[in-house]
Amino acid sequence: MAPLLDVRDLTTHFFTQKGAFAAVDKVSFSVNAGETMALVGESGCGKSVTAASILRLVPDPPGRITGGEIIFEGRDLLSLTMREMRKVRGGRIGMIFQEPMTSLNPVFTIGDQITESLREHRSISRADAERRAIELLDLVRIPDARRQIHNYPHRLSGGMRQRAMIAMALACDPALLIADEPTTALDVTTQAQILELLDELKRSLGMAILLITHDLGVVAEYAQSVLVMYAGRGVEAAKVEDLFHSPIHPYTRGLLGALPHPDDDVDSEGRPLPLNEISGMVPALDAMPAGCRFEPRCSYAVPACKMTDVRLAPLAEGVRSAACLRAADIVQDQP
């Protein structure tokens, strides 16, 4: 079966006074219907720009999608007219943002904003739209939905606002929900509730989720497959179990190695050991190495890494791929 969303060699450039930089450089991945796919990486690695590119939301100028294909439900989103694209946005693909505090329009009630998105895509009566809004608020577990639709956003807590955002995004039964760091601005308990809710909605509505996050814990808990990004490129793609069980790319290994294990990371006398870290810094956009972009920080690097512009390539096992010259050696070394 063809995947719901198939992103191939997506490239998004930003044109600045210092020159053109690829914030997303030939990134490929696919999302199957009903699954959660995670894009993970640190700040500035291009994961949000990737998400924005899918809905063609990259601000132009300075940004522009310069290459690749985004096949969604059999159509290349990059070839759609603006009018067709508007039907996809909010209709087939919903999106929720990092900041539920500012993502709701302060001058309208919650109910108005949900019915707004309904009436944008469907010709339905005001009364029906309101009934559907109440249904949606029930669906995202906002208590007392019948009353809440008349409330203004400032009367809701952060978690409730994110739920309202989710309700808006789900208004027209999208096939794909893009969640751009949906819990970053929320406290830990609320985070878990929202992610749990998204997971349940995914199952009950059969939609796919593209989850953008920098939190590997979230990935492990809620995603089925994952693409690790580094400096604008995909460096490792795998099923979640495989990635956490046996990371291949040195960057992924570094990330997982840097996760704290409070119970195990102690020396013989019970004192905590220092956390592992990946040495060095992400190279600046205008000073990217010619070869592998992780090479300067990589403990596995060999001289050839400096020269070879290595891209995501399938490994012998088939279901996973990594962008590393030494992937085969690393696989062999694994215990």
Binding site: L57, G94, F97, N105, V107, S117
Partner: peptide
């Protein structure tokens, strides 16, 4: 630049609707 305008774009609103129904009232 506010996110609720982004949210409106993501919902598929046209420029005219964004201006009139989202930004102007604010």
């Amino acid at each position: 630049e506010r996110e609720f305008v982004q949210a409106g774009i993501v919902m598929g609103m046209s420029d005219f609707r964004l201006i009139v129904t989202q930004i102007l009232p604010n």
